[in-house]
Structure formats: C-alpha cells, structure tokens
Design a protein around this nucleic acid. Structure first.
Lengths: 224, 224
DNA sequence: GAACCGAATGAGCAACCCTCATTATTTCTG
DNA sequence: CAGAAATAATGAGGGTTGCTCATTCGGTTC
C-alpha cells in the first residue's frame, strides 16, 4: 500500500514535472503572451483542462516556471561562493556568476520581470529572496571579519550590485558587445569598494598635510 | 484654406490627445492587461474602432503613452540639470530628480518595462534615449573640464547610475521606507565617485612627490 | 463485478482585440 | 450652394484565447 500510494504520488509529480517543463519551454520560446495554454497542454501530452488541475491559471503556471529558475540560480551561486574564502573574493565570484547566468539566460530572467510587473501585483519576488540572501550573507560576514566597514548600508549595496548588473546585461545585449563583461565586473567591484571601504584617500591626503605641517614647523625653527 | 486645414489638423490632434490621455489614465489605473480597449474608447468619448485609426493596436497605443511620459521626464531633468554648474553637482541633481520622479510615478515607470519586456521585442527603449543622453552629456563635459577621469567608462557608469536607482526605488516601495532616499543618493554618488575619480595611484605618486620636496627643503636648509 | 472516488477530458462559454462594411462629416467643384 | 468626392468615425461581427464544468475514465475496495 505504501508502495502503491507512492506510485500514485509519483505519477502526479511526474505529470506536474511534464507540465512545468513544457511550459518553461513554451514561455522561453514565445514569451508570456504568445505561449498558449493549448500549446503547453499539447507539448505536455495532456488535455487543456488538466493544466487547471495543477495550476490555478496561466499566471500561476508561469510563476512556477520562474520560481524553479531562481532555485536553480540560487543553488549555482551558493556553490560558486563556497569555493572561495575571503568575502571580497566571494563578492567577485558572485558577481561573475550572476552576470554570466543573466547573460546566458536573459530571456528567462526577463520573464521573471513580466511576472511581477505585468499584472499589477505588488507582491515582491519571493523567488529572488533566497538568491539575494547569498549577497547579504557575504556582506555580513565581511563586516564581522572586519573586511568591510560596519556602517556599510547593506540594503542599498544590494540594489547597487544587482541593479547595475541587470542594466549592464541589458546594455551588452542591446549593443551586441558581450566582451565588456570583465570591464563591467571590474567597475562594479570598484564601485562597491568605494562604498564598502570608504575614506582611504582622504586619510592619505590628510597624512601628507600633517607631514608637510611638521616640516613647516622644522623650517620655522631653523629659520629662527 | 490654410486656416481650415489647420483647424482640421487641430481637431485630429485633439482627438489623439484625448485618446492618449484616456489611455494613460486607464493603463495607470489598471495596468497593461486589465485596461480594455473598450474602456479606453469610452473614456476618450470615441468608438472602439476609432482607436485603430490613430494607433495600429493596443501595444502601439501603450507605447505612445510611455513615450510621452519619458518626454516629460527628459524635459524636467534638463531643466534641473541646467540650474547648477559643476558636472559633479549636475550628477547629484540628476540623481535626485530621477529618484524622486521614479518614486512618485513608479506605476508608469513600471509600465515602460512591460512594454519592452512583455512582448518579445528586442527593440530598445528609444523613449529612454533622450533621457540617458542627459547623463552622458554631464559625464562628457566633466571629462572635458578635467573633473572626471578621461578613462571613465561612460556606458557602464550609465548602467550603474540608472540600475542602482531603479532597484533602490523598488526596495523602498517594497519595504515602505521611503526615508532612505537621501542615504541612497549619497551612496550612489559615492559609488560613482569611486569610478569617476579613481586615480589612487596618481595621488600616491603626488604624495611621494610632496614628501620628497619637503625633505629636499630640509636638506637644503641643513646644508646651508 | 459492482459501487465508489479522484483524476482527466474537451466541448462550450465569456471576454477581448481587431477588422471592415456602413454611415456621418468635411472638403472640393462647377 | 448643391452635389460629388474624400476623409473620418462607427460598432456589429469574426477569430482567438483563457478558463469552466458536466461527463468519462481508471483504479481501488468490498
């Protein structure tokens, strides 16, 4: 019996898998609007009505696809980040991974925006939550270790980090120049450094002022 | 005759204005999908078929609304930027203006994304072109004047600038904390500074020069 | 094998964008 | 100014598409 119920559950899971998989393909190929429920059903080898047994409506099916995509991304990012030690390197690794994946899979990334923009739901992207948390973790650890300034505005940095990357990818795809990737990463890290480790330059200048002042005192003494 | 044709043109222009205006309101209130062409026609005091005499389809009408919004933004930004002198201040002014306007009118801003994301047109946002050019102009002028490093990667900076702001606004709206606005602006400018005025090396060299000069003075004195 | 129950089906409905034959309005002409 | 010609506007109807629901199917139990 346990075996039989399990088989039954597995059957349902398989069907759901087939549906999501077919939906993913269709949405990817044709976008949210152009992908028809009838096509998805056909591709999944299922009657149209069956879709509605597994997902409330088209949008819910769409959301399932997007959610799964973000889960994949999160897993990949976790692995990459775990491979290096210092928070600074982790940040660089996360940036590189994210940029690459967004570039490779822009279409799907785009779709995740359609989901939240398109229909006026203000419900935030819970999909992204886990992904963003990786970033937060790196920053927090960096602050704890003393690598980063304790006043670092984590939330704002997050926006800087991901916002810049999304726009950079969009620019690259538009202009067709994907070779700017290293330059973009370098700039992003330089910018975050500017916020994470501030006030290095002023201190240096200050240092020079103090030294010159000291010399001036010597001069004044000698000239006396 | 000239008068009559003018009157005719004006009449057509008026009707178009009424349509776009009604569409703007509807799209703003209900979003791209939920706003029905029938409703827009009714709101504009026009038959549904008439809409299609002025705009090819729903998307074209939508595009007209978005374009007009960006024209407004561009005009406002130009004015604000012209009011201050140094490129650095202009950048700050542009940032503040942009952030404020995106915050105030997020819904419409959102819609401009639906336009380009939603239907799989890779055609870039010509709407934004003029707006972005304001930013480019500031940077170029700054480089010419010597305020900014000549190696400044303008295109990437653009992505940093606008990407960060969009994400920041989204965060603020999500968390309901709009009081972070000054902090967000400060961080953004600090980050751009980090990229625009790198030259840590030159400063260091300068520092050494100054120290050596000071020492030389001491030496000269002692040798006297 | 009969009764039961959840899963699956697909014809049909309602909503919506868009077209086009028809009607109204303006412009032109003699 | 009358009537013809051209242009603008209309809205009923066509074609899609997302979704529902009465019906059928497949398997489990007694």
């Amino acid at each position: 019996m346990t075996v039989r119920t399990k088989t039954k559950r597995e059957k349902l899971a398989e069907r759901e898998e087939a549906i999501v998989s077919a939906a993913r393909k269709m949405f990817h190929e044709r976008g949210m609007q152009a992908a028809k429920m009838a096509d998805i059903a056909a591709a999944a080898g299922v009657a149209e009505g069956t879709l509605y047994l597994y997902f409330k409506n088209k949008e819910a099916l769409f959301a399932a696809v997007v959610t799964r995509h973000w889960e994949d991304l999160t897993e990949g990012a976790s692995r990459v980040v775990a491979e290096v030690d210092t928070p600074r390197d982790q940040l660089a690794a996360l940036a590189q991974f994210t940029l690459r994946r967004i570039l490779d899979d822009w279409k799907l990334f785009e779709l995740s925006f359609v989901l939240h923009y398109g229909s006026g739901d203000t419900s935030d992207a819970t999909d992204k939550r886990a992904y963003v948390r990786i970033f937060d973790g790196i920053i927090e650890r960096g602050i704890d270790r003393g690598d980063f300034s304790p006043e670092a505005p984590v939330r704002l940095l997050r926006d800087l980090f991901f916002g810049t990357m999304e726009y950079a990818v969009r620019s690259m795809l538009r202009s067709g120049k994907q070779d700017d990737e290293p330059a973009a990463l370098a700039m992003l890290l330089k910018a975050t450094d500017g916020v994470l480790m501030p006030t290095a330059e002023p201190q240096k200048a200050d240092l020079a002022d103090r030294l010159e002042a000291a010399v001036a005192r010597l001069e004044a003494m000698s000239n006396r």
